[in-house]
Design a binder for these strands. Structure first.
Lengths: 236, 236
DNA sequence: GGCCTTAACGCAAATAATTTGCTTTAAGGT
DNA sequence: ACCTTAAAGCAAATTATTTGCGTTAAGGCC
């Protein structure tokens, strides 16, 4: 398969991506999410709708792209001086953020796209936990098993947020944590290799609100109408 | 608020719903899911597209409605003679079904709609577990804590399927089960009341493939275009 | 069983979203 | 500074979605 020609990530492409993402955020705040449309977002961003369709493909992919950026961490978990309180504070904040209306909407956006965004977001959570473990080791403290915390603290929290079958409380989160901490790595289930299994080194602490170099989404390469009965085959 | 006039659930309405659901299933099998359109489904079902828009609202709601019906259990979990093996078999089948491409697609459909479908689906799982517990009690066996199984077996399984961050194995599921069963109801976290907290009695065993009376979706009552700048307010 | 009310559906037209061909702008390499 | 070409803009075409109104038939009542 031919390698794609080089993607342009500077200048106008970056500015347009920022403008479109900001437009999505503003419009999502002001309107019912289900009523967002691409022409509306394009008008708010000051671009042509076809720019959005060519770059992202459809509304769902755009919302997912924005959601992943919003879920991407911009700072390490707070350092409270001890691993237990670091983890506790992280989980408390995680639950509160994910169970908020904005958090729920972002998760739905992430799951609704065909892209591998959920896997990427799982990596964010694992990354935070890795940071807390590394910090504990730097202090010569006993750490915790990241897979245990993901399976028995993070997963139940996410499950109940997504299914909406019960309201979450801090007591509930604390009890999940206590349960994991009362039996550290013993009887850990086998965790077969997966895309996110390799743990990444924690990134340098960036501080809240720091600006990152924009990741520019390459344009969709799918040709023609989505339906198989498309009238005109694409040019590329 | 005025009570809605009575909904017609018989004859043509029921036939149209069945036809549309079957059309969705056939087209989803034959085509890329992301390429499904309402006009296409309408043609396959032999109805007018506006029928679908009026009844379901949009494609997303239709796919979710179909997904919930496909996820709705039509039979009790198999009876293997002992609670431990009942639960084990149930979890094995649950993981295999949910992690299949069809299972993943159905879950994404369920989460993508504004309706409270996820909560309903959570109820299905809880219902199965309740059946297994009731069966155990009928045999004078020690049962298990349903909340524990949901939090520490079902939730991790669903988490990894949704996030796609690792592949699931039967060993992994068995280990999750072993972990719960090695500490039955001790230290259960507080489970605050929620919509699905009240446990429903298990339904009479229906046998595989039994036919249920159709649930007919009432038409959408939302008026006008989704966008706030709709030109013509609806009649009803 | 016939009649009546009216919910749901079909049809067609209008509106809006999405796609596509072509031109213009400007990113980035030399 | 120049050149190649990716990305964006523009406008037209196509398709999806919405809406007004007429038709069909569900279901309650007598």
């Amino acid at each position: 398969m031919a390698v794609r020609e080089r993607i342009r990530v500077g200048g106008r492409s970056a500015r347009i991506q920022t403008a479109v993402h900001e437009a999505v955020k503003r419009l999502a705040t002001e309107n019912n999410r289900d009523e967002l449309t691409v022409p509306q977002i394009a008008a708010e961003a000051g671009v042509t709708p076809s720019t959005i369709y060519r770059r992202w493909g459809d509304l769902s992919a755009l919302l997912a792209d924005v959601a992943v950026e919003r879920l991407r961490p911009i700072a390490d978990p707070e350092d409270t001086g001890a691993v237990a309180s670091d983890l506790r504070l992280f989980i408390e904040q995680f639950m509160e953020e994910m169970s908020s209306p904005v958090g729920r909407a972002l998760m739905r956006d992430v799951f609704s796209s065909e892209e591998a965004y959920p896997c990427q977001c799982a990596g964010f959570t694992r990354e935070h936990l890795t940071t807390i473990v590394s910090r504990a080791r730097a202090r010569d403290e006993a750490a915790f098993d990241i897979d245990q915390v993901l399976d028995h603290v993070v997963a139940p929290i996410i499950y109940h947020i997504l299914y909406g079958d019960r309201e979450l409380t801090l007591d509930y989160c604390h009890a999940l944590l206590d349960r994991v901490q009362s039996r550290p790595t013993a009887a850990a289930p086998p965790a077969p290799a997966g895309p996110a299994a390799a743990q990444r080194a924690p990134r340098e602490k960036a501080g809240r609100g720091s600006v990152r170099a924009p990741r520019v989404v390459p344009p969709k390469t799918r040709v023609g109408r989505k339906s198989a009965n498309s009238k005109s085959p694409g040019r590329r």
